[in-house]
Computed example of a mutant assay.
Amino acid sequence: MLLKSLYSLSKIYGFVVKTRIFFYKKSVLRSVRLPIPVISVGNITLGGTGKTPVVEYVARYLQKKGKKVVILSRGYTAAIKQKGDSLNKNICNDEYLVFQENIPDIPHLLNKDRAKSGLHAIRQFQAQYLLLDDGFQHLRLARDMDIVTIDALNPFGLGHIVPRGMLREPLKELKRADLFVLTHVDQCGLDEIQAIIDQLREIAGHVPVVETVHKPLWLESLKDHETADIQVLQGKRVFAFCAIGNPESFRKSIDGAGGKVLGFHAFPDHHIYTASELQTLNAEAQRVGSEAIMITQKDRVKIKNVRVSWDFPVWTLKIEIRIVRGNEIFENKINAILN
């Protein structure tokens, strides 16, 4: 009965999505074209596919080329209160806080109306390029390049549109993409990676594929921001928790760095922690006999101001995107927009 209900809901949602796409293709609904280039980074599935570090990577690349770039986000699940941030009315989300830490000199605007936000970026920040975060389905704003991130751990959303599967739209819409960025390729076998690439070629044969990994860089202490070499994790007994779209990738990153995960708790993506929850996690870490607690940067920016008495060192695993195959493809695609 449940499967039948999910199938029906999936059909209804899919019809709405396909109708909307059709209306944009036939110009019944019109896209807004801004006077400067727009590059979108998005995906076709729910959950974490590595969009945030890819957006950061592209932003840094544009900045190194001497371009003024502004990131535009919808501000989905913006529920974290901030002080002194008039641009976003003191409310933001975890991705915003991560960008604020990693690329503080690149403006990041949160607004459901990203066409309006783009005009604001041009006027206030003299933006030369706009980087649309999670923009593949945001058809209202025309773009010059669509980068689609594909998670190697769950590339095609179980093959069905939500809620039966994790697809946000039919797989055939991947033909709209200009570049696929395949993430977490180090956490899958070579045969699995090739099978994903083969399927992408069947769907959208003209779209090139770039392969990337989430490279662990160092550990950072929640208490005092002191950093430690990633080798410190070798053989360390740890308890880990996170609230990200793909918790399994985080666990695999800890395993890959040599940590021994004794306990692991995954919360829904964008979860806002309470002090009570954090105290419970601390007690769980004590129960399993861990030596340290591991979290992601997206978790740290949300809990750093929550008053909790930790019995263990709490470390952030700092990572960044690295292109391991197809760097020339990536640069040629971006440079074509720059030129």
Score class of each variant (00 low, 15 high):
159 G>V: 05
307 R>N: 04
308 V>S: 05
242 C>I: 04
99 F>Y: 15
89 K>L: 08
94 D>C: 05
22 F>A: 08
194 Q>P: 00
82 Q>G: 07
60 R>N: 10
26 K>R: 15
338 L>V: 05
219 L>F: 13
135 G>I: 02
259 G>F: 12
154 N>Q: 13
150 I>P: 00
288 V>L: 00
32 V>H: 14
132 L>K: 02
332 N>G: 14
289 G>M: 02
195 A>T: 11
154 N>L: 08
157 G>A: 09
41 V>F: 12
326 G>I: 00
158 L>Q: 11
106 I>Y: 12
286 Q>L: 11
27 S>A: 13
189 G>P: 06
278 L>H: 08
282 N>M: 09
232 V>A: 14
307 R>Q: 05
279 Q>K: 06
210 V>Y: 14
118 G>N: 10
6 L>K: 12
88 N>W: 01
92 C>W: 11
113 D>Y: 02
85 D>F: 06
322 R>N: 02
251 R>N: 13
70 V>H: 12
178 D>F: 14
287 R>T: 09
334 I>L: 15
168 R>K: 11
193 I>R: 02
240 A>C: 07
31 S>A: 13
219 L>T: 10
34 L>C: 08
243 A>L: 04
158 L>K: 12
85 D>A: 03
151 D>C: 02
228 A>G: 03
246 N>E: 15
134 D>Q: 10
117 S>P: 01
158 L>I: 00
173 E>I: 01
183 T>W: 03
260 K>Y: 15
255 D>E: 15
287 R>A: 14
55 V>W: 10
323 I>F: 02
295 I>H: 07
116 K>Q: 13
315 W>V: 00
271 H>R: 02
284 E>I: 02
62 L>T: 13
283 A>D: 13
25 K>S: 11
222 L>Y: 12
292 A>M: 06
152 A>K: 02
165 G>L: 09
304 K>A: 02
298 K>I: 01
210 V>N: 12
336 A>T: 06
251 R>D: 10
158 L>P: 00
201 R>N: 13
122 I>V: 03
98 V>Q: 07
312 F>E: 05
252 K>V: 01
309 S>T: 07
287 R>Q: 13
77 T>V: 06
54 V>C: 06
285 A>Q: 04
215 K>Q: 13
332 N>V: 09
47 G>Y: 15
160 H>T: 01
170 P>T: 11
70 V>K: 13
23 F>D: 04
212 T>I: 07
247 P>Q: 14
245 G>Q: 13
58 V>G: 08
70 V>Y: 15
42 G>N: 06
107 P>E: 11
257 A>M: 10
101 E>P: 00
31 S>P: 00
141 L>Y: 07
178 D>I: 12
206 H>N: 10
2 L>S: 09
247 P>L: 12
186 D>R: 06
159 G>R: 03
149 T>E: 08
33 R>F: 09
329 I>C: 06
263 G>H: 10
22 F>C: 03
257 A>L: 06
324 V>I: 15
215 K>S: 09
95 E>K: 04
58 V>C: 09
157 G>L: 09
96 Y>L: 01
97 L>W: 10
78 A>K: 11
68 K>G: 02
211 E>Y: 06
273 Y>L: 01
188 C>S: 14
238 V>D: 14
104 P>A: 09
81 K>I: 00
120 H>N: 08
318 K>V: 11
162 V>P: 03
20 R>A: 12
183 T>K: 14
233 L>P: 03
